[in-house]
């Protein structure tokens, strides 16, 4: 489903805050809107419920993303997040978030465990939430 440019800009801000904890520039929001409008309906077609729910209830975005990751990897929500990630990654503003970084081994292990645990918790909440949202 294609959205208009202003609602896509709002969506881009929501996704950017979730993905990298930063607000996107106006240029990035415009690029995201253009990308979503450029993709054929085929690419962004499918069950829209998780996507619409996450847009209406921003608190649910991390959980629905996690739920889709293990239960419905090609969900429209994941696809839109992929577009946002690709656009954020290929900017000078946010390149540092995506470029590889070397950490000492103890820090690397700690970071891996921390984010692994966070991901597991989100999945535990996200899968049932996704199932619930799909039945609404």
């Amino acid at each position: 489903m294609r959205g208009n440019a202003s609602s896509l800009a709002v969506e881009c801000r929501q996704f950017s805050r979730y993905l990298i904890g930063r607000d996107p520039s106006a240029e990035i929001m415009e690029r995201y809107a253009r990308a979503c409008m450029k993709f054929s309906d085929d690419a962004l077609r499918g069950n829209q419920r998780a996507y619409r729910f996450a847009r209406r209830h921003p608190w649910s975005l991390p959980f629905l993303d996690a739920g889709c990751g293990v239960a419905d990897g090609t969900n429209v929500l994941r696809r839109r997040l992929l577009i946002a990630s690709a656009i954020l990654e290929t900017t000078t503003d946010h390149a540092d978030v995506f470029l590889p970084r070397t950490r000492p081994l103890p820090a690397a292990i700690a970071i891996t465990l921390f984010h692994g645990a966070k991901a597991a918790l989100k999945i535990i909440v996200g899968v049932p939430l996704l199932l619930l949202v799909k039945t609404l």
């Binding site: 979730y18 993905l19 990298i20 991390p62 993303d65 996690a66 990751g69 293990v70 990897g73 994941r78 997040l81 992929l82 990630s85 978030v97 995506f98 970071i111 891996t112 984010h115 692994g116 966070k118 991901a119 989100k122 999945i123 996200g126």
Partner: peptide
Amino acid sequence: PLPHRESIKL
């Protein structure tokens, strides 16, 4: 298969 935010960090 992980959430995007954690995937980016990892």
